[in-house]
Write a protein that binds this DNA or RNA. Structure first.
Length: 961
RNA sequence: GCACGGUUAACUCAGCGGUAGAGUAGGUGCCUUACACGCACUUUGUCGGGGGUUCGAAUCCCUCACCGUGCACCA
């Protein structure tokens, strides 16, 4: 059977390269929508196009590859659709930083939008393929012919169409609101991109004079004294008896100090949201720089309008900061131009030393929102942005809550549900250049972007007639209409749609020529990612691919993007496909270092997966990571795990070499009549392994499956079965030898298939080297193990045909127990394991010659005397076992003390167990209430131990005192 | 503050109502003709604390402590 002789050591890198090329050449990863096979599909979470492979990717990709490969073996038509994400902020930041470092620019404005974007595209062309190549090194079996990028022309078209669609439905609107502003990236962010971090700061207590009551002061507590110039009111709780009577009066705002006093008078207003207990119960209201203050301001203003209080109606937020977080002129002479944190100290200082109104300062810890990307505190900022009222929220909640879509592990369902329950409108516009430019147009110079023509309340919108008269719109539109059918669809639809249009680059240029100007902002990256499951399959066309593979089967991703991505894909799936995008979501853990810290560049604790592949092989890396990645838990990465994976591959390799060195044909049928107890035992263990591994994979318990594979193959197959098989292989009994080889081949053939999803390369290599492909049909393992059928549990007919009964299994187990005992005796007597030594066995029942041979090998006994009755010399190390009594006669070498000690130790253990079980049996309520089977089991246990104890006692007594 | 997860051998974790387990690490001996990336033997546990339910609890309930994560957040 051996086709080519296996080299002494496994060399993963050459083998991996060879087989990956073969798989690609054979088009084995390609998905055929016309296939009659049932579909299995999975879309890759698209990595950042300029990203590099991390261990997080290794985990994520390996899981998907395992799912895809197993699905192929289960006879499914598999689509694993790959691609990359343009990753707006991340990519733009990287390119900008690089250009700055090269000295090419100081700021992106130096280049201008178009040239800067050229640079980003250049960068993308250079780096964009890298991560894809890295995924291939890992063995990812994606259909590369379908690779997509979120800024492909067709994909962009989808994004625009979706925007216009939502706009038409009234779900997208432009509004002036408090947004999370990143002063470094200079863009608005969504709530999800803000992470709260505890921060040590200072609470400043300063007093302000009540204008109407000279000499009377209120004390205000704040952490941000630099925003005092932006205060437009002071709020107290109207139910707070200390302050309620002051509502309607005014205080003198201390800053900016140079402004005349009368211009610094701000009203005291009442608001239920002010807490009595916190600080002094008096809150400064800075509506332009704090979300909560903005709401208080809005309520006060509404109240003013309702009650006709002119002062409140006219109260306007004062913006005292520039977009980059420095203070502007409204902040006053002392602060203007300073960075916000510097300004804080300066403001505090002037309260303290110049104005002398600072009463006290206390160290204070509060939570501050940080920009996820730039890692600086975000600045709440009043700004005009595009918002989306998320569609299909109820359906999206329900599909998960009802269990129609399953999350693994389940507990993420609650997190997901909770988020959807309190979902806020999504700020989708970003002040960046890299991304999908918002498909909204206006007439050039017709007005200012920030105010025209969109306001959020529908009734405030200008009418079509207004617009037509105001800006001559009709005239321009008629010009547009003649140019493109595409515009007609979206531009001339209704009076409101005139501003939103899907446009190709060419069309955009035409619009520009006609005097239209496009919104310069781009869309949040996730506004394109949320379409990934169907936009990659040809939507909005009704493609074969969509028909066959949508909804997808599994999604594998990290829980950190459950809101960013998973939830939104579900909403999008319902909105445009009318169906959920995937049936199951598997959330991986986060990879940490072995001390439990997150992987990070600055800590230098994040190994390069490619180095690991070069050192240990891709299979080793995959196996090592999967074996230590339990469902739902974080993974503490340790290179030791990869080493273990490598060792496992080597073990597999050597077992295959062992098989190959025996020669002989692999086509032999197993002959039931010649099966030994070891054969039967290992077949039953294989059956159990198939069941357990299949069940584990069905439930996404990958580490359980990997551990079972490891334990089964190493301990059961190699350590016990292959060792025992040497008795037959060395026996010179040709039929027996052939039969043993048939069993070994059966085991290897099944084991390789069970391993293949985890270890694709080495299993493919051995599949061919051991010639397993020979008798398989082309489509089922003849060309590649990838399509070999997934092993099924051995059926009843199989068990019957090969007489795989409990009796043989129990005998084998007893035999291995006996071997363990014998090895312990040998070890205890200080005999080296390689030294052949005389054992004597006094069996319970006659032992077949073959079994004697097996025992001889496993015990490394020479000779093994099997006798009816052995009169052991006093003190001979002796082990009573189920198969009989085993002696290790040591002529003249007996160490009575050591042997007594060994027996004593064993007896102590057994006595302890006996005490426990007897206490239970002596308990009347135990006897009364316990189920019969449990009771019997306890009785059996008791008598077994008692017997064993008696035997040991006898042995010990035989040694004398 | 609310919610979720965790606390089991030196480390990482499994077990989730009926005799405490695995891998790694440690110890000892072996380069035994598939494999030293190996083989054999072997040590180690108040299963976080307290209370309850039960004949019986690592396992179920309550409570406390600590660790982690998510959400909310008050100046």
């Amino acid at each position: 059977m051996p086709v080519s002789e296996l080299s002494k050591a496994y060399e993963p890198n050459a083998v991996e390269e060879k087989w990956y090329a073969e798989w690609l050449a054979g088009d084995f990863f390609k998905a055929d929508p016309q296939s009659p096979k049932p579909a299995y599909s999975i879309v890759i979470p698209p990595p950042n196009v300029t990203g590099m492979l991390t261990l997080g990717h290794v985990l994520n990709i390996t899981i998907q590859d395992i799912l895809a490969r197993r699905a192929r073996m289960l006879g499914k038509e598999v689509l694993w659709l790959p691609g990359t994400d343009h990753a707006g902020i991340a990519t733009q930041t990287v390119v900008e930083r690089t250009l700055k470092k090269q000295g090419a620019i100081r700021h992106r404005d130096d280049l201008g939008r178009e040239k800067f974007l050229d640079e980003v595209w250049k960068w993308k062309e250079e780096k964009g393929g890298i991560i894809i190549q890295q995924l291939k090194k890992l063995g990812a079996s994606c259909d590369w012919s379908r690779e997509r990028f979120t800024m492909d022309a067709e994909y962009s078209r989808c994004v625009q169409q979706v925007f216009v669609d939502l706009y038409k439905k009234g779900l997208i609107y432009r509004g002036k609101r408090m947004v999370n502003w990143c002063p470094v990236s200079l863009t608005a962010l969504s709530d999800e991109e803000v992470i709260m971090k505890p921060q040590n700061g200072t609470m400043y207590f300063f007093k302000v004079e009540i204008a109407e009551m000279p000499g009377t002061f209120l004390t205000i507590a704040t952490t941000r004294p630099e925003t005092i110039p932006g205060d437009t009111a002071v709020a107290v709780n109207p139910r707070d008896e200390r302050y309620a009577q002051l509502i309607g009066k005014h205080v003198v705002r201390p800053l900016p100090a140079e402004v005349p006093r009368e211009q610094r008078l701000i009203p005291i207003i009442g608001d239920e949201h002010v807490e009595f207990e916190f600080g002094t119960g008096v809150l400064k209201v800075t509506p332009a720089h704090d979300k909560a203050d903005f709401d208080i301001w809005a309520r006060a203003r509404r109240d003013g309008i309702r009650r006709g209080i002119e002062e409140l109606r006219q109260m306007e937020p004062i913006n005292i900061m520039n977009p980059d977080g420095t203070m502007n002129a409204f902040a006053g002479e002392a602060l203007v131009g300073l960075d916000r944190f510097e300004a804080r100290n300066v403001a505090a200082d002037s309260l303290r030393n110049q104005l002398r109104v600072l009463e006290k300062e206390e160290p204070y810890q509060n939570n501050v929102g940080y920009s996820e990307r730039a890692d600086v505190p975000i600045e709440p900022r009043l700004s005009e942005q595009w918002f989306l009222k998320c569609p299909q929220v109820e359906k999206s909640r329900n599909v998960v809550a009802s269990g129609t879509m399953r999350f693994y592990p389940e507990r993420w369902e609650k997190v997901y549900d909770h988020w959807l329950e309190g979902i806020q409108d999504w700020c989708v516009s970003r002040q960046l250049w890299w991304g999908h430019q918002i498909p909204v147009w206006r007439l050039h110079n017709s007005s200012d972007w920030t105010t025209w023509p969109f306001t959020f309340a529908r009734d405030e919108l200008p009418t079509t007639t207004d617009l037509q008269t105001e800006i001559g719109l009709e005239q321009s539109l008629s010009k547009v209409a003649g140019h493109s059918t595409f515009f007609q669809t979206y531009l001339l639809d209704t009076d409101l749609d005139i501003f939103a249009s899907t446009t190709s680059e060419l069309e955009a240029r035409e619009l520009q020529n006609l005097g239209f100007e496009r919104d310069p902002d781009v869309l949040d990256t996730w506004f394109s990612s949320w379409l990934w499951p169907f936009a990659t399959m040809g939507w909005p066309e009704k493609t074969d691919t969509l028909a066959k593979f949508y909804p997808t089967t599994d999604l594998v991703t990290g829980p950190d993007i459950i809101f960013f991505w998973v939830a939104r894909m579900i909403m999008a799936g319902f909105e445009w496909m009318g169906e959920m995008p995937f049936r199951n979501v598997y959330f991986t853990g986060i990879i940490r270092d072995k001390q439990g810290r997150k992987m990070s560049k600055s800590l230098g604790n994040s190994p390069d997966p490619l180095d690991l592949i070069a050192k240990f092989g891709a299979d080793a890396l995959r196996f090592g990571v999967m074996r230590s990645a339990p469902l739902g838990a974080d993974i503490l990465f340790d290179e030791k795990n990869v080493e273990l994976g490598r060792n496992f591959c080597t073990k597999l390799w050597n077992a295959a070499r062992f098989r190959q060195m025996q020669g002989g044909e692999s086509e032999n049928e197993i002959n039931a009549a010649l099966l030994t107890s070891d054969d039967k035992w290992i077949l039953l263990r294989l059956d159990a392994a198939i069941r357990e591994i299949s069940a584990a994979l069905d439930e996404y318990r990958f580490s359980d499956a990997a551990q079972k594979l490891y334990a089964f193959f190493w301990s059961e197959f190699c350590d016990w079965y292959l060792e025992a098989s040497k008795a037959a292989l060395n026996s010179g009994d040709a039929p027996r030898k052939a039969n043993t080889l048939a069993v070994i081949d059966f085991l290897l053939g099944h084991t390789l298939r069970l391993m293949h999803p985890f270890l694709p390369f080495i299993t493919e290599e051995l599949w061919h080297a051991l010639d397993f492909q020979r008798d398989m049909p082309d489509a089922q393992g003849g060309r590649t193990i990838m399509f070999a059928p997934w092993p099924q549990p051995l059926g009843d007919d199989f068990r019957e045909r090969y007489a795989l009964d409990d009796r043989a299994e129990r005998f084998a187990i007893s035999k291995y127990e006996l071997v363990n005992q014998g090895r312990t005796l040998r070890r205890n007597a200080g005999i080296a394991s390689k030294k052949r030594v005389r054992f004597v066995l006094q069996p319970q029942e006659p032992l077949p010659a073959h079994e004697q041979e097996v025992l001889k090998i496993l015990l490394n006994a020479e000779p093994l005397e099997v006798v009816g009755n052995f009169d052991a010399p006093k003190g001979t190390p002796t082990a009573p076992t189920a198969l009989g009594t085993l002696f290790l006669p040591l002529e003249g070498l007996v160490d009575f003390g050591a042997e007594r000690e060994r027996l004593q130790k064993e007896m102590v253990k057994i006595e302890a167990e006996l005490v426990k079980v007897r206490a239970k049996l002596a308990n009347p309520s135990f006897v009364e209430k316990v189920p019969r089977a449990v009771f019997d089991e306890h009785r059996q246990r008791e008598s077994a131990w008692a017997e064993k104890l008696a035997q040991l006692q006898k042995l010990r007594d035989g040694l004398g005192a």
